[in-house]
């Protein structure tokens, strides 16, 4: 197994000068290639902050975060942006897509930033839209897509750059339950079939059920970290997977 994330002693305090909030408190975290991990915990427990630290969007006050063996806390701002581009996929809670670009162009964008060749982009983008089951919606603008469809396109975009892992902060929070399950199905499928590493935060019990590892945060600390067998029950409108 290949180590993807190796975080040691990570702490983050907001407002250190006024009313300090210890949002992430001395967290150790080890993530292997191919994991499908849920980060759970009550609101304000530090899920978003931790994901931002792991994704290199924010810097910890203490500790080291090694991604693929590289300590991202030591990178310069520009190098960090470049690192994110090449190694980390992001899915945010909502408004992931650029409204003036079509679904396809949104996914292409990330590969264009990587200076990939047109043929490579075309092929990969088409494959990704097949994976998310939206070949017919490639040339649609985000405003014409449902919330669930937008999140699926966001997953495709996150994968387009061939990242080491995908971070998703409450990706289903704004979705109805059907779209939420559907999104999780797609993520789980990508995880199983393509060995894509996912780490996502959530409140949603049905989403937690799909995870193979559940890390619970309380007050910025890891309260529990358990492996589990995902319940992968078939549901409406979908055939059971073998």
């Amino acid at each position: 197994m290949k180590t993807v994330i190796d975080a040691h002693n990570v702490s983050k305090t907001f407002n250190p000068d006024t009313i300090p909030i210890l949002a992430v408190n001395n967290v150790h975290l080890h993530l292997e290639r191919g994991e499908f991990t849920a980060l759970v915990g009550p609101s304000g427990s530090g899920k978003t902050t931790l994901l931002n630290l792991l994704g290199g969007l924010d810097k910890p006050d203490k500790g080291s975060i090694l991604i693929n063996g590289k300590d991202i806390t030591q990178l310069s701002p520009n190098a960090l942006i470049d690192f994110r581009l090449h190694h980390i996929g992001f899915v945010f809670q909502s408004f992931n897509l650029i409204p003036v670009l079509t679904a396809r162009e949104n996914v292409e964008l990330i590969m264009q930033l990587q200076h990939k060749k047109k043929e490579e982009i075309d092929e990969r983008v088409l494959n990704l839209f097949r994976e998310i089951g939206m070949e017919d919606k490639m040339d649609t603008r985000p405003a014409q897509l449902s919330g669930g469809q937008q999140q699926r396109v966001a997953v495709a975009r996150a994968l387009a750059s061939k990242p080491q892992f995908v971070l998703a902060d409450e990706p289903t929070a704004n979705l109805d339950s059907k779209s939420a399950t559907n999104l999780l199905d797609i993520m789980a499928k990508l995880n199983q079939e393509e060995n894509i590493t996912f780490i996502f935060s959530t409140h949603d019990a049905r989403v937690i059920e799909r995870a193979r590892r559940v890390i619970t945060l309380v007050d910025g600390q890891i309260h529990s970290d358990t492996a589990r067998v995902p319940t992968d029950l078939p549901h409406e409108g979908e055939k059971p997977r073998n």
């Binding site: 994704g55 969007l57 520009n78 942006i81 470049d82 994110r84 581009l85 090449h86 992001f90 945010f92 408004f95 992931n96 650029i98 409204p99 990330i110 930033l113 975009r157 996150a158 750059s161």
Partner: peptide, 16 residues
């Protein structure tokens, strides 16, 4: 503002 933040988050350099 939000969109620009997102673009930088996913890896667009500020120069770009």
């Amino acid at each position: 503002k939000y969109e620009m933040g997102m673009l930088v988050a996913i890896g667009m350099k500020k120069g770009k």
